[in-house]
Design a binder for these strands. Structure first.
Lengths: 340, 340
DNA sequence: CTGAAAGCGCTAACAA
DNA sequence: TTGTTAGCGCTTTCAG
């Protein structure tokens, strides 16, 4: 058939070996710095040959041979959510440091889509999987890839059979609500919560309730909405429509807080004068809302590092929880510093 | 669900073939639906064997054999920036539709880091590369992976030797500024610009200048800052410090607009009463700032689809530009609708 | 329509 | 210290 393509074929170990006057095994030893030692002079010749010929190892061949791809799968609900956007960046940095690549998929947050996302990723022979599951952990195990090391991130509680990494959500939420109760003297705090994993407790809500209990207050109203801006707005509007405005609101995520702030502005309520607002996550953007949000921040960098470490670590499942830190800004009534 | 696989070692074509009483070639024909036809009955037996044994093709072996990995590399400045977060989501959706995986790397936006990110990705034998380059296109070509199909996204101008996908930035910026000039009657508009690719014109700034020229106005002051929230704040503060406040500001990106809004609030200036603000990008969040931002929106879905199509398309480089649409909200002085 | 068999490029025994 | 070589699992040409 017609056209003869004279494409410069790819350089292989064999050619490097021939050029350097050694065997292909030696080339491999040099490239991988093992498993056998190579005489310094020989090694130098090989490296020179590699340089001259422009040799690059074929990663498919290596993966086929070794059984390891050096790639970890990453399934997130989607980086449109700035929290997961920042998480993704941190995971990439950690993966780079660990020398592995990240094969990503967005789950779109819907359960069906998440299962298929995991499915698609696992199909490609990754060495492990990092999943921010928005669905029940039970569902993920439906994916029958035996023994693929999996770590669930943004997961504040242990899940049997899986490694998990998450914030100390309950403690963080409690600290934030106690700040409102004790420092700013609110009698109670309302809560705009997010739809979570059905079978598990919502730790943020637990912490919020706990803060009230500890100080013998009765909690304000709760409303459960989507983890979206629109959800936050809707939830806040519902709250406002069902009684006198609360004096303070604890929002379950920065994304929802955008919507809450919006709803409050639409309703002519000032923050923090009329209503104090605090939020959970502490993304970069929370310093730029108006007013800037008082938050508990998730230590994303540390959690991402832990996630990558854990997925690469073959010793059994473990749960790692990270302390959150509170950042006070204007939205709670404190006079925070201007953004840097 | 629950078919349980009891094979300790991985199932291969050979085993499927043996189970189905055919040769491995036939199994391959069935799995890949070609290149040779298989008798319906035989095919059914093979599919049954695959099901029963829980066979999954080894993608490394297939890649080694075919020379194609079915994976496209993606290098973005980082998904902490919500614009690129949304872009990443759209690219993932498009990649899924096209049946390819996305191997991602964050470049961190720094030139050195971007080159190494591209380097790391290319090393893994991807079929193509999608890059949102924040640096000079010249620099990317320094990466010497011969003939790796590459498409530059978020790139509003053609670059010789590369495929490019971007918005009609100049037209979009002009439309936005003209809205301020003609509808709201501002005499001139200031501009908070972003540091761009040095050797190329800043099309947003060009559009801004063009709007003034077309209507015989002299442009307001410009300040060039980082494409960050802090950069936007700084730039706006500089603007305010160097003369009387402008009556209107065109901001080069939503991220910077966050900072501009913040700076204005700090300075006690109301939007839009004292200063009108419009922005370029139209990310989801722009509907939730206070006040909501009037923007020109980048058609991210369409551009992402085009990017994936283009990188998979072997016919030569091409440039595709997409029209932006203006969304008027409160920040320009229009009374936009409340967020849905 | 199906089977046999030759590698793709690499790593890691095993030999020397 | 280095060379030889047997596959890893798959696709696809060539025979049947």
């Amino acid at each position: 058939m017609g056209v003869l393509v004279v494409s410069p074929t790819r350089v292989t170990v064999a050619e490097v070996a021939r050029y350097a006057g050694v065997s292909s095994a030696v080339v491999s030893y040099v490239v991988n710095d093992g498993p056998r030692r190579v005489a310094p002079g020989t090694a130098r010749r090989v490296r020179e040959a590699i340089e001259v010929l422009g040799y690059r190892p074929n990663s498919s061949a290596r993966a086929l041979r070794t059984g390891r791809t050096g790639i970890v799968g990453l399934v997130l609900p989607g980086t449109s959510n700035p929290f997961f956007g920042e998480y993704a960046d941190a995971l990439h940095a950690a993966a780079d440091r660990a020398g592995v690549g990240l094969l990503t998929a967005g789950s779109g947050g819907a359960a069906a889509s998440e299962a298929t996302a995991v499915e698609r990723i696992a199909r490609r022979d990754v060495d492990g999987l990092i999943v921010a599951t928005s669905i029940s952990p039970a569902d993920i195990s439906g994916v029958s890839y035996p023994r693929l090391p999996t770590v669930l991130v943004d997961c504040a509680f242990p899940v049997p059979g899986y490694s998990t990494v998450g914030p100390e959500a309950s403690e963080g939420a409690r600290e934030l609500v106690e700040h409102l109760l004790l420092v700013h003297g609110h009698r109670s705090v309302a809560h705009v919560a997010g739809h979570g994993v059905d079978i598990e407790p919502d730790l943020r809500q637990l912490g919020w309730a706990d803060a009230h209990r500890r100080h013998s207050r009765s909690p304000g109203p709760v409303t459960v909405t989507d983890y979206t801006r629109a959800g936050g707005r809707r939830g806040c509007l519902d709250l406002l429509g069902s009684g006198p405005p609360p004096s303070a609101i604890f929002v379950g995520s920065d994304l929802q807080a955008d919507g809450v702030l919006r709803a409050l502005a639409e309703s002519g309520l000032r923050v923090p004068e009329d209503v104090a607002v605090v939020s959970f996550d502490g993304t970069d953007q929370s310093a730029y809302t108006s007013p800037p949000l008082t938050v508990v921040r998730q230590p994303i960098l540390a959690m991402a590092t832990a996630a990558v470490e854990t997925v690469l670590d073959t010793t059994g499942p473990r749960h790692r929880a990270f302390a959150m830190d509170m950042i006070t800004r204007r939205s709670c009534g404190c006079s925070g510093p201007p953004a840097g």
